[in-house]
Nucleic acid binder design. Structure first.
Lengths: 327, 327
DNA sequence: TACACAAATGAACGCGTGTTCATCAATTAC
DNA sequence: GTAATTGATGAACACGCGTTCATTTGTGTA
């Protein structure tokens, strides 16, 4: 049923070796013979079997892509850019979706059985043991959106501290004094960094956080936590959210309570997802440099595929302040 | 470097056949021996090489997933559900992202070289020739979101006509008379069906379409087209949009012009993406049954993988009317 | 024409696995 | 106690490909 190189060889009247060479760039074969073989192959609908090709130790052309909640605005945006860049490298993304509660290890272990040439991990909690297992398996790993302490692992991450400083500068410039924080999942690396970045930047200006609540990075959770903050005692005049989705929820919460944004309460987010610029929100935020992040991640990955002994790099990319109307 | 079954066999003191049997469910092997082998394998970090396993004609466990603009709210939602359901089948999604302008054929052709066990196509224009090429290759295909005329191809599709009738019923109930349409990409199957469904349902009630414009299914395009409609001569008192994203853009456009929704202009969409229920929009729409669609698609796919001669099915799933505040 | 050398070609090998095929031990049936 | 049956085991094979290794063909020089 499947058409193999033998079929092409038989129909073209050449040896199977010739067929293989016709598909191998730079192989020693007469040009007209190669053309003939390729024509026959195309006629028969033949394509070299990637599974067999990779068996001899060659590359599979597969890259495992570990992401979390695909439907979230930020992750889907990221996945789109990443999958396009992987394809422009001539490779294919093997999608490994890890929902917030799920374990990343068994999932990635399974994917490793496909002899992926590399893995991009942008979700879940990554242990050093996991990274080393992948490396030992011959699949270099790049971690995105977090930095493993102790180094030794290539990683690309937004400079969350710098981003928070930009937001706090705006906070100070607009004279906010009662500032609250709505964080994401407590264990998330970005959440920890952004929270610390915020408190540090605030204290550097003699400001303090008046309220703290935690959601789960969804719009709904942002709305709930903002409602709690704004209806509680001593309501804030500014809410800094751990990501844009929660900030959008917070804006909706403020409006439901009849508060004006930014006059009564300023609200800002983090990431600059597409929805942040939609008119009803016009969210002041800092842009997570997704395109550059993906580009750097794949650069690191290809470097390491070529030279496994190269020292690990940690790339910190600066975000860009986006002032809109919400603060 | 890579640990193979031979390594496990050597360390466990058994033949390589025994190792293979230990990993094959239902194979003839002593239970304690199997346990021992599995323990040694786990110790060495061994996993059967899927590439080699599939070489003998076995299944690869890969399913090609063809989607379009991943970052769009609807597609990312769909992809999340699909990828989870594929994994719960014990298989893996090979992501094939086809941007609106790109050709689906060469991309899918490449993916076929990985001997995928099946393909779910939810984007791009699908020709019968393409489907037959996949089938000939041993990879059954299920098409989602469109129906190939002439049948012969398994497909799952929302009943767009029924959805439009629901919306028109609401349209009539609220006494709208100047109705406009903002469509998506002209060549898109869903766009054609929804447009025809709308005009048919309108004429059945003695209504006609007063204006027609076309965007590209994005929020921005919905905003642009709605601005043009609402500032033109004889502005509509209702706008039906080809999807929710454009409807969200249309709501923003109306508000920018100082119009009240739904009092001055009613706006509705299609799909019921998560953002449709966000408070600033509260979009009246019809829910595209994504979970059921994915479920049916995978049911058809697994059926066809088991029996390639089964007759093709066309499944039409009814949408659900979601009345909110925008109309 | 004779020789050296490069280019092109086909046979054979190995990649890691599941499976078939004999072989052998252990049980059951008579 | 013997024959028949079952269950477990290891060797060998096939899967489809890239690549190496001889071997053959073609080209340029003396």
């Amino acid at each position: 049923m499947r058409v193999t190189a033998d079929d092409v060889a038989a129909k073209a009247g050449v040896s199977r070796s010739a067929v293989s060479r016709a598909f191998t760039k730079g192989a020693s074969i007469q040009p007209d013979k190669r053309d003939h073989i390729l024509a026959v192959a195309n006629d028969l609908g033949y394509r070299p079997n990637m599974m067999a090709r990779s068996l001899t130790g060659g590359a599979t052309g597969l890259i495992a892509v570990v992401v979390g909640t695909i439907s979230s605005p930020y992750e889907s945006w990221f996945l789109e850019v990443l999958s396009q860049d992987i394809r422009s490298l001539g490779m294919w993304p093997l999608l490994v979706a890890v929902a917030p509660g799920q374990e990343i290890e068994p999932a990635l272990d399974h994917a490793l059985a496909y002899q992926v040439d590399g893995a991009v991990i942008a979700a879940g909690s990554v242990s050093r043991a996991l990274v080393e297992r992948c490396s030992a398996h011959g699949s270099p790993v790049v971690v995105i959106g977090r930095v493993l302490e102790g180094g030794g692992v290539d990683s690309v991450c937004c400079d969350n501290r710098a981003g928070m400083e930009m937001l706090v500068a705006r906070l100070a410039a607009t004279g906010r004094s009662h500032i609250a924080w709505i964080g994401g999942r407590l264990e998330a690396f970005s959440n920890v960094e952004r929270y610390n970045g915020l408190t540090n930047a605030l204290s550097a200006r003699g400001l303090t956080l008046m309220g703290t609540r935690n959601g789960d990075y969804t719009v709904d959770s942002g709305m709930m936590q903002a409602l709690a903050l704004l209806t509680g005692p001593n309501p804030p005049d500014a809410i800094v959210c751990g990501n844009d989705a929660m900030a959008i929820g917070a804006i909706s919460a403020a409006r439901r309570l009849g508060l004006r944004v930014p006059e009564d309460v300023g609200i800002c987010g983090f990431d600059d997802i597409p929805a942040a610029s939609w008119e009803p929100f016009s969210l002041t935020t800092v842009a997570n440099p997704v395109a550059e992040t993906v580009q750097e991640a794949l650069r690191l990955l290809t470097c390491r595929m070529a030279d496994k002994t190269a020292p690990a790099e940690i790339v910190r990319l600066p975000p860009v302040f986006r002032q809109r109307l919400s603060m």
